[in-house]
Amino acid sequence: MGLEQFKNRNVGTQNYKTLDLDHTPVTGMGQFKQVVSRTFKPELFVGLWVTFREMINALFRGKMHTTQYPFEKLPISPRYRAIHEMLRLLESGHYRCIGCGLCEKICISNCITMDTRYDENQRKEVSEYTINFGRCIFCGYCAEVCPELAIVHGPRYETASEQRASFSLFEDMLTPIDKLNLQQEYQGFGAVSPNADENIKKTPLAY
């Protein structure tokens, strides 16, 4: 391949297709000519043909474009930020949240609150967790900052409900324990990058 295309520094012209637009006629004769040419050109019929063709395509060639939501749903990106989910550890089924409060801190609309306590096993227990969805702007910072990949954004975008409160407590967000096998890892912001292992420096261990 030559270097010609790089030598053309007339940026803005090289890869564009310019349309041959008619100039607005100024003389009476010019206007007359334009009318005549437009009248006898089949442009209008091209329009009719296109719509008719699309109808045939839709009806008989299976090219109907409609997705019949809610009976059919389009797949959404794994990075989609819908209503939050709290994940569980796959091995033990215990919730992942450690109650560190980083999500609460980073939340720019100040809508996350949590109650924690010292539990019987000398661990920090999240006794309640809530997101005020009246304020949440679904920015995803909470999922990004979460060190345990505990709070993530789920794919559940159908959030019509009689009460906002139906989504906002720990129980509502937590993966039901009987559906643990269906729990999906989150791929969005804050998820472990595919090459995470390469970036870790190992610490010596005595045993």
């Binding site: 661990r123 920090k124 420096k201 005595a206």
Partner: peptide
Amino acid sequence: QCGVCDQSGECELQNYTLELAVDSQSYTIQ
């Protein structure tokens, strides 16, 4: 588990570890 520690960011160990730019560990003991 700094996440659950009650010092929560007011930790001098954390501060000095960062201040002295400790980014790797050379020592170990059981």
